[in-house]
Design a protein around this nucleic acid. Structure first.
Lengths: 149, 149
DNA sequence: GCATATAGTTAAGCACGCTTAACTAAAAAG
DNA sequence: CTTTTTAGTTAAGCGTGCTTAACTATATGC
């Protein structure tokens, strides 16, 4: 609590540039691939969530279910998504990445991390260890928050 | 070098969720503001760069100068950008954030960090210190790379 | 079992950003 | 001084995603 100001300063500055870079890299990736920004956004979400219903996606993307339905349609036609019926509720659909979609999105992530690797290579062994530890801490803190909700 | 695998694992996992979240938060912010995603992208860039020419923006955004010119036009009309003549080269324009644009974008950044603050609050003092140190390390590594180019 | 709610689809219409192409104006090159 | 290059603007046309509204089909409540 008391050290949160000092904490913020160093964390924020780094994150600003990180987000800035990753936004730019994402935009570049989207342009070289045959997908649009909203499509990329959807694929990214499904890469994290494994599978989703249309309404879940609609909520996450903050658009109507109609819009999502149409977008999913295109991505299914492009063989980047799979859309199947939910056996428990036949109204609902289960949307997930196709193998092709998965490799595409992982390639995108890989590209985004080229820069992270550069930074990583600029670290001494000792520094890298400290950084790795910090991210472990952040990871478990994140879990605590999520489970606490 | 040898620890780069272990390094990657912890760093990447956290960054995936971080990027994922910041993408979602950015999208939300864009929707509540009266701007579009490309406009946000442009404003964000100018928040980092202070000022730019049209061609600079074109290169960064990977679009034609015509597109940039049109986009800038809208943002100037919305009073989010200022466009003035470069005194050294009267063909060129100097584009920068207006006060209104600056406060808007800073509000957006602030919102994105609400989650970071949550995580930060979930850390013990000792943990926070380690994390802050790690980001200092990353920050200086980043500088080394940039200056080395 | 009938009414209502929920999940998703389809179609029409609109706004937006992007591209190409033609253009103006200033700087650089010869 | 003339030619060419560079910086940016403008306009037409296109594709895309989004919204609203009407619709189908399954599930739930009384």
């Amino acid at each position: 609590m008391t050290n949160s100001i000092q904490f913020s300063r160093s964390v924020r500055k780094w994150m600003n540039t990180f987000v800035h870079r990753s936004m730019r890299d994402s935009a570049r990736f989207v342009k070289t691939s045959e997908i649009s920004m909203p499509q990329f956004f959807m694929l990214m979400h499904l890469h994290q969530r494994e599978h989703c219903g249309i309404s879940d996606l609609s909520e996450h993307m903050d658009t109507s279910t109609a819009a999502v339905s149409q977008l999913v349609d295109k991505l299914v036609q492009a063989d980047l998504l799979l859309r199947s019926e939910d056996p428990n509720d036949r109204r609902a659909k289960k949307v997930e990445l196709s193998p092709k979609g998965k490799t595409l999105i992982e390639k995108g992530i890989e590209e985004r991390y080229r820069w992270v690797n550069e930074v990583s290579n600029a670290l001494s062994d000792e520094e890298a260890k400290k950084v790795a530890e910090a991210f472990e801490i952040l990871g478990s803190a994140m879990k605590r928050i999520e489970s606490g909700k």
